[in-house]
Design a protein around this nucleic acid. Structure first.
Lengths: 173, 173
DNA sequence: TTATTTTATGTGAGTACTTACTTACTTTAT
DNA sequence: ATAAAGTAAGTAAGTACTCACATAAAATAA
């Protein structure tokens, strides 16, 4: 990746995540990145190609965040780790998440496939903890995580420490 | 509202909800509605004005769905009713919800204000039921509502009867 | 009622501007 | 010397929106 390529990707991420994919023109991206518009197409062929390049790194990053959960044997620790995920996302990574959430609605760029292993790990944990309907518990738990992540991304005020404690207590962790 | 006005609004709702606001051009709306493009601007001044007209009816409809909750005295009945809300949305109304969810991300057209009375009613219910941190419980409950609504809208398969039963049991209703 | 004026509803062709993308060309690195 | 990286100025096809004009409906006058 050349210097200018990185500038393009960085500018596009910021714009796509904050203004939206459709609302961002390639000329805007070029201007923000400080490059000629043609260069975007030299490197990524199309606007869609640029998005895909960004999404690849975004998804890799998110997978990375969830991997420790997949391998965890102790169900209580697993749930604790899962709860922590949204709270551990750094501000520098917010744009990745924003983009992901936005695309879920803007382009039906959905990933139930991507989240499947997580859902399965959660189901296993709930099974081990003796919950009656572990699959539903896992689904609900995912709704919670989504909600928390969305709230944090949008910088809606949530007392992170207190809320995390609340979640721990709720699941007796 | 004239006949053609209704056609415009209907076409716009379908397109905005399914393709997205930014991805939908006024010419597309006119074509789908079977009217001249100029008519849209005669009636609604701008594309944004058309969206606002649609959003007004959408928000009214959603408020209507939540009103029975606000007035309910019995906390258990209140929660039961709240759990049911997403399941009671008719398919004919899906586009309203889709649009609402989409705009939440596409245009930060957010409504924490709109949902405030619901949140307060939920908090009251959890207080009455003796939950330790009713405000957090209410917040989390809203995440659940968001999660199922999103799943239903996207027609992800969920055994509605079973899931509802699961929720009832979870909150001991 | 009828005739006439006013108002609301509707159209089609235009507007200036933006869109994603191309192309011919130059600069830099290998 | 060759290939890759980069640019500036295009392109055709949209974009939201306007305007001059036509038609239908409603209000008023005879």
């Amino acid at each position: 990746m050349t210097e200018k390529q990185e500038k393009i990707v960085k500018a596009a991420l910021t714009l796509f995540a904050n203004e939206g994919y459709n609302a961002t023109s390639t000329s805007k991206v070029a201007k923000k990145a400080g490059v000629s518009e043609g260069l975007i197409f030299r490197h990524y062929s199309s606007k869609e190609g640029l998005l895909e390049a960004i999404m690849q790194t975004a998804e890799a990053r998110i997978e990375q965040l969830f991997t420790p959960i997949l391998w965890e044997k102790d169900p209580k620790v697993l749930l604790r780790k899962a709860i922590n995920v949204p709270f551990e996302v750094e501000k520098a990574e917010f744009d990745f998440w924003k983009l992901l959430f936005k695309l879920k609605w803007e382009k039906a760029y959905d990933n139930p496939e991507k989240m499947k292993p997580v859902l399965e790990a959660l189901t296993r944990a709930f099974t081990q903890l003796g919950y009656a309907t572990p699959a539903y518990e896992a689904t609900l738990f995912e709704f919670y995580l989504d909600g928390i992540a969305a709230a944090l991304i949008k910088e809606q005020v949530i007392d992170q420490v207190a809320f995390r404690a609340f979640m721990y207590k709720k699941y007796q962790l």
